[in-house]
């Protein structure tokens, strides 16, 4: 009966198989991404000033099953203002990537406010881009307030 069904609906069957394969690959990339952990290791400044002359170093670690992963490309963007010196950094032998964030200088247009550094692992996927991610929120403080 199944054979007869397949014979009568050949195209539908091929489509279904393709969809299933894609879904399986996508699911596999989701599972793989879950095995990687991105974590904030350190922030160079105790207080992050909204001052573009005082950059901040943010260290992010990448591990898989607790082991540091070297040679992965991590990509970071700053949401809410300021810039990354480099958006893309490679993890070292300790699984650490060091990003430099240059804050904006607070003024009447952009008062000091929280900024989120979003980091993704660009290298953890096989077929689809399913990235391990981490977000770090920096509470920017106006220099005068401090």
């Amino acid at each position: 009966m199944l054979k007869a069904f397949i014979k009568n609906h050949k195209k539908l069957f091929v489509c279904a198989v393709v969809v299933l394969v894609i879904a399986a690959l996508f699911g596999m990339d989701i599972i793989i991404s879950k095995t990687y952990t991105l974590k904030l290791e350190s922030i160079s400044e105790e207080v992050v000033y909204a001052d573009n002359k005082i950059p901040v170093t943010v260290q992010i670690s990448l591990t898989q099953f607790g082991k540091p992963i070297a040679g992965h490309s991590l990509y970071a963007v700053a949401e809410g203002g300021g810039r990354m010196k480099a958006n893309r950094v490679m993890t070292d032998e300790n699984g650490i990537a060091e990003f430099i964030y240059v804050p904006y200088t607070a003024n009447r247009f952009m008062p000091a406010a929280p900024v989120t550094i979003k980091v993704i692992d660009e290298s953890n996927s096989l077929v689809f881009e399913v990235n391990a991610t981490v977000s770090v929120t920096l509470e920017l403080v106006e220099k005068e307030d401090a």
């Binding site: 573009n52 002359k53 005082i54 950059p55 300021g82 810039r83 240059v102 200088t105």
Partner: peptide
């Protein structure tokens, strides 16, 4: 500050530390 590769045209503005 947002266009960190440029110098402000006004005297009393600072350029990016980058």
């Amino acid at each position: 500050s947002e266009n960190a590769s440029y110098i402000p045209a006004t005297v009393e503005s600072e350029y990016s530390t980058l």
